[in-house]
Write a protein that binds this DNA or RNA. Sequence first.
RNA 1: GCGGGUGUAGCUCAGUGGUAGAGCACUUCCUUGCCAAGGAAGAUGUCGCGCGUUCGAAUCGCGUCACCCGCUCCA
Length: 587
Amino acid sequence: MSTDKKDTSSMEKLVSLCKRRGFIYQSSEIYGGIGGFWDYGPLGAELKRNLRDTWWRAMTREREDVVGLDATIIMHPQIWKASGHVDTFTDPMADCLLTKKRFRADHVDLQSGMVYHFTGATGEEGTKSDVPFAVLTPFGKPRESALKVAKLFYESRGVKTPEPTGGEQGEKVENTRAYNPENGAQLTEPRPFNLMFKTYVGPTATEKDVAYLRPETAQAIFAQFRNVVDSSRVKVPFGICQIGKAFRNEVTPKNFTFRSREFEQMELEFFIKPDEAVEILAGSVVTWSEGADLSAPQPNWGWDMWHRYWVSQRVEYYNSIGLGTDVLDYYWQGPDDLAHYARACVDILFKFPFGTEELEGIAARGDFDLSQHQKHSGKPQEFFDDELKVAAAKLTDEQKEALIQKRIAFEAAKTKGTPLTEAEVRAWFDRLFKGFYVPHVIEPSAGLDRLALAVLAQAFTEEEKADVNGKTEVRTIMRLHPRIAPIKVGVFPLLKNKPELVGKAREVYDLLKKHMNCFYDETAAIGRRYARQDEAGTPFGVTIDFETLGEKGDEFKDTVTVRERDSNAQERVKISDLLGWLLQRLS
RNA sequence: GCGGGUGUAGCUCAGUGGUAGAGCACUUCCUUGCCAAGGAAGAUGUCGCGCGUUCGAAUCGCGUCACCCGCUCCA
């Protein structure tokens, strides 16, 4: 999925600019830093807030069919049991002592054979090792093959032409997972490899009190599904969205903020009717075909139409904040990549300097999550659809049986997971015909920190420019979309030693600052102030000059120079029109 | 977790055992009529951290932390 394209130098420049200008700092830097954690400085905090706001607006405020949620980071541990995170996040891992290859300790093939235990080795030039090592050889293979592996092992530990000691007698061992099946070398002791941060709730800190920092925000949405349904008059199809911190104890945090241990997710769980319910209600189900109209949801849409719809919605969102089709890419997971419960998943990728990597995943997850919580909590997670009940009541027994048979055939054709038995299918339809179903879900899940990194990488531009002395130098411009730029406008008196200019500039600043994030700057030459704001990504600069004071005639009195970051173009705007002029260009 | 690299002023970096430096940035003042102007003065360092070797360590050794690259991992 990731490409070979690497651009380390531009990444380094970006990291450096982020620190210099106050976008992103290393966490706890004065104590040497802490791996995988990053802080946002003054500009970064504003940028992130703007991104968060644009997402929240696009996903819920501007829609009638999505509501918001803000849940806690620490939740009942059972939630992570139900979701499968406790099991998949606690894999014991073991490494091959010879090749360093890592295995899931419980997935190593069972082996039987003779195990030779070595106690160390001596070699030329006085080199030696006391590290014990063991090799498993299949029955019937000579001791020499074990010796060969042991020699390689001690050689790798700096013993020259090693003579391993011990290991004269083989020990018969059956059904062990302690040795590398590829070379027989001993594996390290299995170590738990828990990607969830663990903590204790309450004062006693026993195993009974273990809780986890959430590794994703999605599960809270599922866990509160019933409450939202019961309290907010929503009807399927509808969505619940949430923005919040999530934590994963990553093995290798990487690529600046791209893979962090603490990060912020923006997730939507959009609940839809099962296709069978759509068929009963609308008479037929529309499935995806190339060129289908995705502009407005329709009552007869099947799950894949909804999935495609959300992909197109999300791409539209990225376009609206300046990430165009030229920097985005897609990865459609094939049937083999998909988890057994998932029906489809597409990753929206961004062309980062370090490669093309995931920005957002949009998954069609069926009814897996709510069903899991229904099973584990014992609380029904069904939605009651009275229209469906009415429509189903009008079906003939033959029509009902046809639907059931179709599903039975579908289950029989499944290649992944456990297919439902006929009895289970009939029980499910029994509920469905009464108007009850567990909604299916489309999940667009985006990383806010990744998005911030993407827009910063996208905005980063270097230009060669000659200064007034004719010396060419490289200037950095952050071409952030005005909608997300941390500072919207810089306000500058042309000269700071003229009190009339300064006074007027402060007036303009006071006028604008209630409506947008502004920056007032009167130090240094005007060109330098423009350049500073270019690095901060500020799209507009307003300069109060002598025309403003009326020195060039009344037609210019109370006008200011507005300078645009990307084109350097200047325009004279009346102070009375300035706010409207800016707001129009910032929305 | 493994291997390689890096770590000195806010930034980019120089400094191979003997008083810690440069450019840019920053602060103040003067000057300055639109794209990093000029002049003057000034402030700025646990040399990543710890231990050791040494009369003396940014420099040598060991350990450790962080970042980058490559493995490994990535529900």
